[in-house]
Design a protein around this nucleic acid. Structure first.
Length: 441
DNA sequence: CGTTATTAAGTCGAAC
DNA sequence: GTTCGACTCAATAACG
């Protein structure tokens, strides 16, 4: 029997409830083998992703819907993120076969341009920063700025004076996403920006316990509470989006922008430091010209060095000494070149391992990279420049050796990408596994 | 009440 | 080689 105003079906009530809590994101609603989008989300996704817009429900009360199968969702999510949208992933959190009535569903993570973990979605050479801006009140001229890349674990905070300084610093950081606590976004850029509540000082201080203790850093934060509150805003935002413990964030650094050369946005642009004025491409910029780095870590570091020119004479000379020594030793340089090219993006590998979403191949890549690092030592020994000498010391040979041996003992050389594919562990690593394999044969 | 049809994009196999 | 259709799943409308 037809009703004039039928109540929403149980599933639609569940959906609307979840959607109400994620207004600013496209909700990927898991329905069996598909992620579905409804209403405005469906219209948006159909338009942006070229999906067929269809409907669900009775003919008189059909609601717009479109969807993609779960195994293909990554690509579609990536495309939405690249277009600057946020995506909330809503999964079935119980087995539908065991569920009484409707299967329970929950948003298990929110993906935004600044909270990406997925290797496929972020370009290797660039950092993927989420930045937070805090301020004391609407007319305040002092700002807290913090930014972090959850895929590499880099996490920094600073205090800035004046809107010009703030804007220049944000352009330098080049975040993919910004959160701010003022009524208006002080950055005023086209970057995706979200307003959040400013964390209280007491609650902000609690995040320091997450990181290894560092009294000089804590002292700096005591004098710059806005920087600490910005760091807390970043931390909280990550936590809400990822719904994990954020173990991959292992360091938090307080820095002083005045220790680096001030570059206003016009100078940055005109110098074409990292991108050309026309077209904004890396090719043709100073960075594009100088970037002969062999690893993703090197590429990101070079970019940082170019954006943060040193002012301190001792530091500059120390860097020159290292560069000079490398420049003069053609043979050693060639050797390093050869070795470095076999090192994978260790920062992001470790990020995935710590976060618990690494695959077996990531572990093999880590092993191979650590092996290469160990064979760097004899080459580095030829140098005397302090910066290069420090590299030998920082390489904790024993720990690296142990990790290599463990991975090598446990995992075959070319494991499958999927954990479910099996055939990951070596014979002889685990007696029980060997036994089970024998039975299976 | 129970059974069947419907709904998305991709994958696989079968037919051409 | 390419095209067509069945099938994937959960929810529910529509039918018997």
């Amino acid at each position: 029997m037809r009703r004039e105003n039928p109540e929403a079906t149980p599933m639609m009530r569940q959906y609307l409830d979840i959607k109400a809590r994620h207004q600013d994101a496209v909700v990927f609603f898991r329905l069996g083998d598909f992620y579905e989008m409804f209403y405005a989300d469906a219209e948006l996704a159909a338009r942006e992703l070229e999906l067929t817009l269809t409907g669900r429900g009775s003919r008189e009360h059909k609601m717009p819907m479109c969807g993609v199968p779960y195994h293909a969702a990554d690509n579609y999510i990536a495309r939405l993120i690249n277009k600057g949208y946020k995506v909330a992933i809503c999964e079935q959190v119980e087995d539908p076969a065991l569920a009484k009535g409707l299967t329970k569903r929950e948003v298990i993570k929110v993906i935004t341009p600044g909270t990406l973990m997925d290797e496929k979605l972020i370009p290797g050479q660039a950092a993927n920063y989420l930045a937070a801006i805090t301020s004391a009140d609407t007319k305040a001229e002092t700002f807290g700025l913090a930014f972090a890349d959850i895929s590499t674990g880099v996490f920094k905070a600073a205090e800035l004076h004046g809107l010009d300084n703030l804007r220049a610093e944000i352009l330098r950081v080049d975040p993919k996403e910004i959160i701010y606590t003022a009524a208006e976004n002080p950055a005023g850029l086209e970057t995706l920006a979200t307003r959040v509540e400013q964390p209280g000082l007491a609650s902000a201080q609690k995040i320091l316990a997450h990181f290894p203790s560092d009294t000089s850093r804590d002292f700096a934060f005591e004098n710059s509470p806005l920087a600490l509150q910005a760091a807390a805003a970043v931390f909280n935002y990550f936590k809400a989006a990822q719904k994990t413990e954020l173990k991959q964030l292992t360091r938090l650094e307080f820095y002083l922008p005045q220790n680096y050369m001030y570059l206003d946005s016009a100078s940055r642009k005109n110098l074409e430091l990292t991108e050309t004025i026309r077209g904004g491409s890396k090719t043709g910029s100073l960075y594009g010209l100088l970037d002969k780095t062999r690893t993703s870590m090197g590429s990101r570091l070079l970019k940082e060095w170019l954006c943060y020119p040193l002012l301190d004479q001792t530091e500059i000379e120390s860097r020159y000494a290292a560069v000079g020594e490398l420049l003069n030793d053609l043979v050693a340089r060639a050797e390093l070149n050869e070795l470095l090219k076999d090192i994978y993006d260790i920062e992001r590998l470790i990020g995935r391992i710590t976060n618990g979403n690494a695959n077996a191949r990531d572990l093999v890549y880590l092993k191979e990279s650590l092996r290469v690092i160990q064979s760097l030592t004899p080459v580095l020994k030829q140098f005397s420049a302090p910066l290069l000498a420090a590299l030998q010391d920082s390489a904790r040979q024993k720990t690296m050796q142990e990790i290599c041996v463990l991975i090598d003992k446990a995992i075959i050389d070319e494991p499958p990408l999927l954990v479910t594919a099996g055939n990951i562990f070596r014979d002889g690593y685990n007696a029980e596994l060997d036994e089970l394999r024998k039975i299976n044969r």
